[in-house]
Design a protein around this nucleic acid. Structure first.
Lengths: 234, 234
DNA sequence: AGGTAAAGTCTACATCGTAGACATGCCAAG
DNA sequence: CTTGGCATGTCTACGATGTAGACTTTACCT
């Protein structure tokens, strides 16, 4: 063997760039896990010294932010569609698909913002927010109402994704078996409902569930807001 | 100074126990952060060798799970209340209060389950699920319907909490200023809506928002499910 | 050809989780 | 009271991690 052993997927020529680094980082996270994304490991994966990464991200936390931003950039929203509910539904399914495609990144999407005040987040992270606000205002909502709708919408959306990922088990064959096995550990006296629901847990249709919840929430919000706008107290 | 320098809050006598360890761990997480909770630091805080902790938790991850479980144990639900919507609303506000009280623990509550198949989670984590299912079945839902309602409910609830914590800024005085300052960084062309909403962002009433969203979602689910149960296709 | 700034590397250090051998304390059985 | 034995706590040590700072190499513009 001249230079490659088992996995050395990087030719030692090409110049590095932020995009290349982040792409490889995402690849690594998808293939293994968040903890597997260490500076040394990523450096090795790129055929470069780990320290070279610091030219493209201030530190590891920033690198993680970069990965999250990269994923979110795959999303786009048609901000001028007058049918806001359809557009929000579309966007929701896009995000859901993304989450299922990059499950290991979801913890980042969900927790990184908690340690970063809103105004300081990477722009890519804030863009969806701005676009959705724009969509809602364009559809006739007042700015404050739009914020209101956005919050309920995003809240439910993120919650649903977390829910679905929690119930998602990798191996589709042994799914039921594993599930029952896991549940079997639970004391029967204390967890009768949960144990009885094992089969129902196995046949979970995430997309349908998302649709239903969103539909209810959004049309509910719509009627409530329009009623409020019609006759509020002065 | 005889033995204490700045902070040595542990008398070297008392026997350790899992509860003591977890309580101190939670205290530390609340006072500082998740990353501050290292084995060495916690050992020092307890006046014991770091390695002694391994008698009470297999490893650091298990310790984190323990902290999450400890927090969730503060919750309780009245599973025999026939007014399920009121009970769910109560529980929701309990959880919200808990999240605001222990914001640093929320990432744990949200992400730890992602790496643990449902059946393998600490029992304390699963108890709310079981109790809510019980509540719903007791109120007349079929088991599958109950699961359905639970998912939408918990999804929205967790989403709302994440949302609220994201917009929560610590210093209540400089709140507006900081917020505006943060937002001021955003390019005006690209983020007009967001920048204009700075004042609205500042006066966020989490409890009210939670109530409204939950109310809409739950009553929507109720009517939809009852309609479904009345006349479904065979 | 030369010079300058960027890109990449090397070395070193503090800190982390934790394995494994060891010391110490406590309680029950003799 | 003595003597086990087992649970509890400690010590030492190792490999891995993030990253600072000084250095070398490379690429490009004049």
């Amino acid at each position: 063997m001249t230079s490659a052993s088992t996995s050395r997927p990087a030719q030692p020529k090409t110049r590095l760039s932020r995009d290349i680094v982040l792409a490889k980082a995402l690849e690594l996270v998808d293939a293994e896990s968040l903890e597997a994304l260490t500076m040394r490991r990523l450096g090795q994966e790129l055929g470069r010294d780990p320290m070279s990464l610091y030219r493209y991200a201030e530190n590891r936390a920033a690198l993680l932010d970069g990965v999250a931003e990269l994923v979110l950039e795959e999303l786009s929203i048609q901000a001028d569609d007058p049918d806001w509910k359809a557009q929000l539904s579309l966007f929701a399914h896009d995000l859901r698909r993304l989450a299922l495609q990059h499950p290991n990144v979801v913890p980042l999407l969900v927790t990184r913002p908690l340690s970063t005040p809103l105004g300081m987040r990477p722009l890519g992270t804030l863009r969806p927010l701005e676009q959705i606000l724009s969509l809602l205002v364009g559809a006739g909502f007042g700015p404050a109402e739009a914020l209101h709708v956005y919050r309920a919408y995003y809240g439910y959306l993120y919650g649903h994704i977390l829910n679905e990922l929690q119930e998602y088990v990798v191996d589709p064959e042994e799914n039921e078996v594993l599930l029952r096995l896991g549940l079997h550990r639970l004391p029967a006296k204390e967890f009768p409902r949960l144990r009885a629901l094992a089969p129902a847990l196995a046949e979970y249709d995430g997309a349908a569930e998302l649709d239903q919840g969103l539909g209810i929430l959004l049309s509910g919000l719509e009627t409530q807001l329009s009623r409020q706008a019609a006759g509020p107290a002065a």
